[in-house]
Amino acid sequence: MFRNAVITGACGGLGQALAQELMASGAQVALVGLNRPALQALAALAPDRTRIYTPDVSDASAMQAMASEWLAHHGTPDLVIANAGVAGGFETADPADLVVMRRMLEINLLGAATTFQPFLQAMLDSQRPGALVGVASVAGWRGMPGNGAYCASKAGLIAYLQSLRAELRPSRLTVHTISPGYLRTALTAGNTFAMPGLLEPEAAARALLQGVARGREHIVLPRRIGWLSQALSLLPARWHDRILLGQPRKPRAHQAGATPIPGLSDTHTSS
């Protein structure tokens, strides 16, 4: 099992569950997130083996500073999980939503690169096995009405991870793409549409870590949601779109039930 791990988005949901699993196994864990009280409560479970960091994952300089401190005090990680992510509805006709899309891309897509980059050379130099894990989504497999920003960010992440995996084939590092369906977290709490295969984050964390340890490069959580998505993709595009158009849409940033997106101006979220 992994002994030295870095996890972004560790404040709750899947990230928190991953941290708890790793800490329970005896690993040293860098807890990265924006909610310091939540991270402090989590770190209290293993204070001698954890450190708390609160950078914006889209800020490359802040992420490099975090990585430098972790490397200096705890050494080179054998597991880096880019889990930080935000979600929300998107309407192309509304110019205010362009800000939402930019911020979502910064966190969900750029944030993965800024998470891996500061650790990559040290992991390569160690010549030891290691894993880079990106938490994407089945939403990255196909665009959905009213969810263009999120789908685009996760589709971009999937492509980025494919590229990184190819680049690192000659090394002892592996790259893993995680595609969750619906997890019971704050990101799905405001959803009013059906969420088939809804999975608890603790179960998802265990399956993710087991899959990565076994070398699985593509992990869908739960597997049956992947089968459902693939089955729907066999339909003609017009039929598929018609089914999706009949579903309620994810709340946008200013609507009831929307989850907060860090870095968005108050003028947008309250408009």
Rank of each mutant, 00 (worst) to 15 (best):
I7P: 07
G13T: 08
Q16A: 10
Q16F: 04
A19W: 01
A19M: 05
A24I: 04
A24G: 10
A24E: 12
V29R: 08
L39M: 04
A43H: 07
A46N: 01
T50M: 03
I52Q: 11
D56S: 03
S58L: 03
A62G: 11
Q64F: 00
A67M: 06
H74N: 07
T76A: 00
D78Y: 00
A82M: 02
A84L: 02
V86M: 11
D97G: 04
L98G: 14
V100I: 13
R102T: 12
R102P: 12
I107C: 07
Q127H: 15
P129I: 01
G130T: 07
G134P: 01
A136L: 02
A136V: 00
A139M: 06
G140L: 01
G143K: 05
M144L: 15
M144N: 09
N147L: 15
G148L: 06
G148A: 11
A155E: 09
L157A: 06
L157E: 03
Y160I: 01
L173W: 10
T174H: 13
S179E: 15
L183P: 00
R184A: 14
L187P: 02
T188M: 08
F193Q: 13
G197M: 01
L208N: 05
L209P: 08
Q210G: 04
R214N: 02
E217F: 00
I219L: 05
R224K: 12
R224C: 10
S229C: 13
Q230D: 13
L232F: 13
L234T: 02
L235P: 05
D241I: 06
I243R: 13
P251G: 03
R252F: 06
P260S: 03
P262S: 01
H268N: 10
T269D: 06
S270W: 12
S271A: 14
